[in-house]
Design a binder for these strands. Structure first.
Lengths: 204, 204
DNA sequence: CTTTTGAGCGTACATCTGTAAGCTAATTTA
DNA sequence: TAAATTAGCTTACAGATGTACGCTCAAAAG
């Protein structure tokens, strides 16, 4: 890669990072202005356009990147679970760790999921869909669920986890522990309940 | 009430209604400007301050009002359920009807739940908490759940319903029906699962 | 070496924002 | 009836925003 392309990539990263860094509980992506992001990245406002068509394009990049990050970390967690122990417990713990270390990655997904841009909502939905279908296949294979049941179950699990994540963002470590315990209980409810419904289908 | 106070109340309503009417899938409350709302309500921008300290105060009013509306409609639905039939099914159907007739009421709750203002998030959380505790008491009484289990169960149910509502906003009637069916299945999972966990506690 | 390309900059402009200040006129109070 | 209150208005201003235009100058291409 030429010197020029290298520098360009560096600036592009600076923009993405600047945007991520400006996110917080009080600041959503849609409240960021092009000028603010450019300022934080130390470039002139008009130079922004050398990298992205507009703020929308930057945001979608962030959603994609964020989804990828999240999935990679969860996958690592699942590997840990293979060594033994409750899959549910370990997955929840992993998720909480991700939240702790990358809150802004989760924030943009969370916020834009119910945001005002259809493109953003679709992008987030796509990321979440990855989680759901990975999980559905897993349950179909290991617990022998009907595809329809597996799907419903996976969706419920992901919904509960995601939602708990949203609550956790506003909490201190101690309260998060309580939340995590309750989340585990809820996930077990869904698992047990799915099992029960499955048996009902089989005995007929 | 004097003529003066009456007129003032009317203008205040015009402001609230104007704000609600400007909400849509593409427009969140936080993206509305004071001037826009005033324009829609046919008053001068500066007159806004005769009714609300700032946009925040208007928004919180809307959240409170919206939560109340939602709860009233759900309560009506529950009365319908007392005549017989599945509580879950009827509640879901009621919820979908509310969504259809008052989408913007739901939108502000949905969006501000993960918004950038702590005050808004707290206000929405308070509204949701009403649903949860009403439901928890109901299950504690009718199904004899442990308080802790009842709470976890109620929270899971509300989470799933709320989340399905968010998805439904982007859907056409036909797809909503499928969504509603799946939601019912998920709610049954939770109910069954909670029951199973309850028995586990009892037999020890 | 010469030419072309393009990342980044500075200037500029029209548009929108929140809100301060002070006036008007109708209602309310005394 | 006279005085006080106040909802709503007009005018005004400072600040921020997105982006069009044209320049520079170092890297890439020929």
């Amino acid at each position: 890669m030429g010197i020029r392309a290298q520098q360009k990539e560096k600036t592009r990263r600076a923009l993405v990072d600047a945007a991520f860094n400006q996110l917080s509980a009080e600041r959503s992506f849609s409240s960021l202005s092009l000028r603010e992001v450019a300022r934080e990245a130390n470039i002139a406002p008009t130079s922004f356009y050398r990298h992205f068509k507009d703020m929308n394009e930057l945001g979608l990049t962030m959603v994609d990147e964020g989804g990828l990050t999240l999935r990679q970390m969860m996958r690592k967690g699942r590997q840990r679970a293979e060594a033994g122990g409750s899959v549910i417990r370990i997955s929840v713990d992993t998720f909480m760790e991700v939240l702790d270390s990358n809150p802004n990655v989760f924030r943009i997904l969370l916020h834009e999921r119910s945001g005002t841009s259809a493109a953003f909502r679709a992008a987030v939905a796509r990321e979440i869909e990855h989680f759901i279908s990975e999980l559905a296949h897993y349950t179909e294979a290991t617990a022998g669920r009907t595809p329809m049941l597996a799907r419903a179950q996976a969706e419920a699990l992901v919904t509960l986890v995601f939602n708990a994540g949203a609550s956790a963002l506003d909490m201190k470590r101690a309260d998060r522990k309580i939340l995590a315990d309750q989340l585990v209980m809820q996930l077990r409810m869904v698992a047990k309940g799915a099992e029960a419904l499955q048996h009902k289908v089989e005995h007929r």
